[in-house]
């Protein structure tokens, strides 16, 4: 754990010193998220749609794009190999590398949600569901990021390899928000990212004032869908991820 924290601190230092990564990971998603607060997206209704767009934007830019770039460039420069030659476990090295973008998503989501709440003076139906939604997005997109990084040769190559996931996430988001919210909307749950989107919408549009059991019942399909996606992506990452550049 200490190794992962040490590597995260190092990654944070590197992020601070890399203007491109800093802009992509912090400035761009925050500006985009703030613009959706001012100009609500044309698709979907209410603040649920705003928050879904904000979080998906963070998952795309801060986590998926920056995470893929970091993993690919660290591997290309043999940094991953170097860290692996220490006492750090494989999990610590990977968490240390992608932990910063993942942590940034959580922090930025909290900041944007706070701004949204402040601007519209409206509280979410369930903060817990909202947090679950963000975490579900981070975990599932994080797992997918490892798969994409496995096939990405360099930071520049990431501009191409990240595109399919970005397109799918954006497409799914737009399509899901055109449908009336229903926690058991199986077509939405069946597509990648659908579980996280449903949890976020549940957090804003769910049955306010109900007990924990009801909330968990409503969240169960989304959590199951997210878990399934994460397991499949993790299995693929374990199969294809490499610590050194392909020969």
């Amino acid at each position: 754990m200490n190794s992962a924290l040490a590597l995260m601190q190092t990654e944070l230092t590197l992020l601070r010193r890399d203007t491109t990564a800093w802009t992509t990971a912090i400035a761009l998603p925050l500006l985009l998220g703030a613009s959706w607060v001012i100009n609500e997206p044309a698709i979907g209704e209410g603040l649920g749609a705003v928050v879904v767009f904000q979080v998906v934007g963070l998952l795309i830019f801060t986590l998926h794009t920056v995470g893929t770039m970091s993993l690919a460039s660290r591997r290309e420069q043999l940094v991953l190999k170097r860290w692996r030659s220490s006492q750090a476990s494989a999990t610590s090295v990977l968490m240390g590398t992608i932990g910063v973008p993942a942590g940034l998503v959580v922090a930025q989501a909290a900041a944007l949600t706070a701004i949204t709440v402040a601007v519209y003076d409206q509280m979410p139906a369930s903060v817990t569901m909202l947090i679950l939604g963000v975490l579900a997005g981070v975990i599932s997109v994080g797992a997918i990021t490892f798969v994409v990084a496995a096939f990405t040769r360099s930071a520049e190559h990431a501009m191409i390899t990240t595109f399919p996931v970005i397109a799918v996430l954006m497409g799914v988001t737009v399509w899901a928000l055109t449908r009336p919210f229903d926690a058991f909307d199986w077509p939405v749950l069946a597509v990648p990212g659908g579980g996280a989107i449903q949890l976020l919408r549940l957090g804003w549009e769910g049955p306010a004032g109900t007990g924990l059991t009801t909330w968990l019942g409503e969240a169960a399909p989304s959590l199951a869908a997210t878990s399934l996606l994460t397991v499949v992506a993790t299995a693929a990452a374990l199969r294809w991820f490499r610590w050194e550049p392909r020969g």
Binding site: A6, L7, T10, T13, L78, K81
Partner: peptide, 24 residues
Amino acid sequence: LQTSGLPGDLTPREVLELWRRLTP
């Protein structure tokens, strides 16, 4: 190693301090 594998934006001191933490 034959190739350093060290991030170019770190300093020698930062790398060594990190390595101390990675070999507890």
